[in-house]
Amino acid sequence: MAPVIRIDGSVADPTAGTVRIDWPKAVWNGAMLLGTACAIALATWQSVLLFLALTYATLLIGHSVGMHRMMIHRSFKSPRWFARILIYIGTLVGVSGPSGIIAIHDIRDWAQREPACHDFFAHRRSLFQDLVWNLTCRFEFDRTPVLTIESKIADDAFYQFLDATWRWHQLLIAIVLYWIGGWPFVLWGICARVFVSAAGHWTITYFCHNPGPGRWQVKAAGIQASNLPGLGLLTYGECWHNNHHAFPESARIGIEKGQSDPGWWIIRMLENIGLAYEVGRPRGNKARGDLLDLTQDQRSNS
């Protein structure tokens, strides 16, 4: 598959700018954190089980499969009606609407693939500061890259509706959860789920960009990614981030033997029943001129 290019950074500088408080983001995530504290005080085993199931399902199906692999990287296609379902589930994760997720991801990805970038994108500060930045702040560029989202998303009335109303969709779920299980279900199924989803996402992102095990190096990129062994099931396969930096076109992220990838299992199931097609795999050896295979270098030096 052709690479997805939405950023024109020709006049931008990924190292120059200021981290500023983003009040809507800070208030939203702060409210979810407060609700999580209340949830702990009212915990029941049923509400905690609900939290675990909803958190895993929405992140796996909506964020990893729908928003990340399908919408952002176009590593597979689905019928329009089904793609909308996947992206709607991704919106329910509670981080942003479709266009917001694309902007967060693509600007960060562009900055990391430049020779140098600000610590806000590089995850070089402490875990605590990185979490505070990403849950409460935005980066204000001195010279901003131009983001162009393809018309099938930017001009789609349904996705525009999600962009404008994404926070309010939690209210619909909250009403159902209150009817089923009262306030413990609401606090665990909304507040704790949204906060843990956002904080957990950035925690994995932080460790995936503080280098550890990884086979591939992207030649021109200032920031390299790591794989996190043993976390495939917990992270839906997103922990194999070194693979993903090397092969963003691949719907399968856990590409090596023993790399569990639940997101890929879902996509393969969808492919088998006709709901996923044009499924991307890692590009062939002749198209890997931008990569260094560090395992080959290790073998040649041994």
Rank of each mutant, 00 (worst) to 15 (best):
R167I: 14
I153E: 03
Y88D: 03
Y56V: 14
A116F: 03
I85V: 15
H68S: 03
F51E: 05
H73E: 08
I149V: 14
S126G: 09
S151A: 15
F120Q: 06
F128M: 13
Y56Q: 13
H105Q: 12
K77F: 04
D130H: 07
W45E: 02
H63L: 15
H105S: 05
D142N: 14
K152T: 07
K77G: 08
D109I: 06
L135E: 04
V132T: 09
L42M: 08
L59V: 15
R167L: 12
A57T: 11
I102F: 02
G90M: 11
I149H: 05
A122R: 13
R74N: 09
S64Y: 10
C38W: 07
D109C: 12
H105P: 05
L147V: 09
A154L: 11
D130R: 00
I40N: 00
H105I: 01
F51P: 00
C38P: 01
L42C: 06
L131S: 04
L92F: 13
V132N: 03
I85R: 03
L135C: 05
R74M: 08
D155F: 07
V95Q: 10
K152H: 14
A111V: 09
L177Q: 05
C137S: 13
A37D: 04
A164V: 09
G100M: 00
S47K: 03
A57Y: 01
I40E: 00
I85A: 13
P98K: 09
L54E: 01
W166K: 02
E140R: 15
L52D: 02
D130C: 04
L162Q: 11
D155N: 13
I153F: 10
F161R: 11
L86Y: 00
R138V: 08
W45I: 07
L42K: 00
Q170S: 14
Y178M: 10
I85S: 04
E114T: 15
F51R: 06
W179S: 12
T55E: 11
P79V: 07
V176Y: 01
T136S: 08
F51Y: 14
W133M: 07
D119A: 12
T136F: 03
K77T: 10
L50Y: 02
W45N: 01
C38L: 15
G66E: 05
R124M: 00
I40S: 06
P79H: 02
A41P: 03
L60S: 01
L177K: 02
H73I: 06
Y88W: 15
I175P: 01
D109G: 10
R74P: 02
F82P: 11
A154I: 07
A53S: 05
I85Y: 10
F76N: 01
C137Q: 02
D163V: 14
I180V: 09
V176L: 10
T44A: 07
I104W: 00
S47H: 10
L162P: 11
M67W: 02
I149E: 05
Y178E: 01
H73R: 04
V65A: 08
I61A: 02
D119H: 08
